[in-house]
Design a binder for these strands. Structure first.
Lengths: 108, 108
DNA sequence: TCTCTGCCTAGACAGTCATCTAAACAACCG
DNA sequence: CGGTTGTTTAGATGACTGTCTAGGCAGAGA
């Protein structure tokens, strides 16, 4: 099992991802996009799900995008967002490995 | 597959966990504790691994503890910290499920 | 009891963040 | 071309965060 302590650089990269997830609004945005049939969601639908202003939603989407968790494309009038599964998997795996190491006991 | 959108309350609880992970120092602390043979680490060892002051490390440990990710106990002079695997597993699973939903296509 | 060491709390300070309003940009449609 | 709608950018503001220094509490040992 790979349970080495993180290097400073690795921790910084991963923390950027977790930090983006550390806001209830962004988590719900991610969840709304992930749960979406077709995998793509228009911004207007996301905005409707909150009592926040458009610019605020736009800001949160930008944070998620800059963290590599989602990506987007404009098609005509509308902008569509989707999940980047590989990035989520990396973060998930770190937690999974740490939890496993802790619950199954010492590594060495 | 369970890929419902998160409720506001659920998102708030989960975000508290991810927020605690969203700092490089805290991520490294968690990793150091998880990688530790025996599952427990003394604060003094953690402090030595950083160029930060004791109070700063203490602060970060408190944040992790209040997020339910670690727990601690004083035994004589020293305080020992350990991972709470169940909490990490919950966060890991959320990401895993979202990634899976996004990569395998529509849920319905 | 006195002192030493390990750890935490309190308070201060600079930097970051979530949110808003106002304004700009982009695409469609008359 | 002008107007309407969807989305983002810019700037402001109040709140929160990471870090420090100073000081306090807890346990061990002389």
């Amino acid at each position: 099992m790979v349970t080495e302590a993180l290097t400073e650089d690795a921790a910084a990269g991963l923390a950027r991802g977790f930090k983006a997830l550390g806001d209830p609004v962004r988590l719900r945005l991610l969840s709304l996009i992930a749960a979406r049939a077709g995998g793509e969601v228009c911004v207007c639908e996301l905005t409707d799900a909150f009592t926040l202003t458009g610019p605020t939603i736009s800001h949160h989407l930008k944070v998620l995008r800059e963290a590599g968790l989602i990506d987007c494309q404009r098609r005509g009038t509308w902008v569509y967002y989707w999940i980047v599964p590989a990035r989520l998997a990396v973060l998930s795996q770190l937690l999974d490995v740490s939890a496993a190491a802790a619950s199954t006991g010492p590594t060495r």
